[in-house]
Simulated assay, not measured.
Amino acid sequence: METFVVFDLEFTSWPGANAADWSAPGQLREIIQIAALRLAADTYEVVDEFEALVRPVQNPTLSPYVSELTGIEQGELDRQGRPPAAALGAFLGFCRQQVVVSYGNDMVVLGENVGWARSRGEQVANGFLGSGFVNLRPLINSLAPATASANAGRLWSVLGLPRPGAAGGQHSALFDCHSLAVALRELGRDPSGPVRQLITASVRGTAGLGAVDPQPAR
C-alpha cells in the first residue's frame, strides 16, 4: 500500500511572538505537541496516527497564552509529556520512508528542535534523510484562495466541509491533521488535478518511499 504522512506541530508561544518571529530573548519555538496521520495515497483515508506531548526544556512552564490557544494544560504536559529527543525520534520513525506533508513550514520548527536536542548531547533516533518533507500551503492557497488566512485547523470550515470527527479543535495538533486530511481529500478528488498529481508524483518519485504495511508495528 502506498501511503504518505500529514503532520502538525504546536510549540511554545507568547502574545505577539508570531508577529515578532519569536525574536524576544528566551522565546524559542519549542515543540509541545506532535501529531501525524498516515494516509492511503489512493483514497487519503487514515491508515494510522501518531500523537505525543513534548516537555519543553528552555521554557518548561507554558505561558497562559499558549495553554489557552492549544488547550494543553501544564499539569497534563508534566504528567504525559515525553522528553524532546524521545518524542522527536518516535515521530521521525513514524515518518520513515514516507513523503511527509504539512500546511506551512512546520519542518523548519522540527529541524530547530532536533538541532537543540542534539546540541544538548541527546540522541535523536531516526532522522530526516529517509523522508521527503513538502509544504502544501502554497498549493492549497492557490487552489482555494479563501484558505489564505486560515490555519490548518480551520481548513474544513473555510472549504465548507463536514467537521472532522477528531476530538478537540483548531490548534490541537491531531485535529489540525484531520482538518488538513479532509481538505486534501476534497481538493484531490480529481485524479488529474494538481493536489493528486503532486502527492502521487512525490510518493512514487522518491525512491522506495511510500510503501508500508497498512498495519505497522508500534
Score class of each variant (00 low, 15 high):
residue 180 L to Q: 09
residue 171 H to Y: 10
residue 40 A to D: 15
residue 34 I to F: 03
residue 67 S to L: 05
residue 186 E to H: 14
residue 142 S to A: 15
residue 56 P to A: 06
residue 122 E to Q: 10
residue 215 Q to M: 13
residue 13 S to V: 03
residue 102 S to M: 05
residue 33 Q to S: 15
residue 43 T to N: 04
residue 180 L to Y: 06
residue 114 V to Y: 00
residue 158 V to A: 14
residue 148 A to E: 12
residue 117 A to H: 00
residue 23 S to N: 12
residue 41 A to R: 02
residue 144 A to H: 09
residue 42 D to M: 05
residue 170 Q to W: 11
residue 215 Q to A: 13
residue 119 S to M: 11
residue 163 R to P: 06
residue 54 V to Q: 01
residue 204 R to T: 11
residue 58 Q to V: 13
residue 52 A to S: 14
residue 203 V to S: 06
residue 40 A to W: 07
residue 3 T to R: 07
residue 85 A to T: 00
residue 76 E to M: 15
residue 17 A to N: 07
residue 146 A to D: 13
residue 103 Y to D: 06
residue 117 A to Y: 00
residue 29 R to F: 03
residue 216 P to F: 06
residue 114 V to P: 00
residue 177 C to I: 05
residue 81 G to A: 03
residue 54 V to M: 06
residue 64 P to S: 14
residue 142 S to D: 13
residue 77 L to V: 10
residue 100 V to S: 02
residue 161 L to G: 04
residue 213 D to G: 06
residue 10 E to W: 04
residue 133 F to Q: 04
residue 17 A to W: 04
residue 12 T to V: 12
residue 19 A to D: 14
residue 35 A to L: 10
residue 161 L to M: 07
residue 198 L to N: 05
residue 160 G to P: 09
residue 192 S to V: 12
residue 183 A to Y: 05
residue 112 E to T: 02
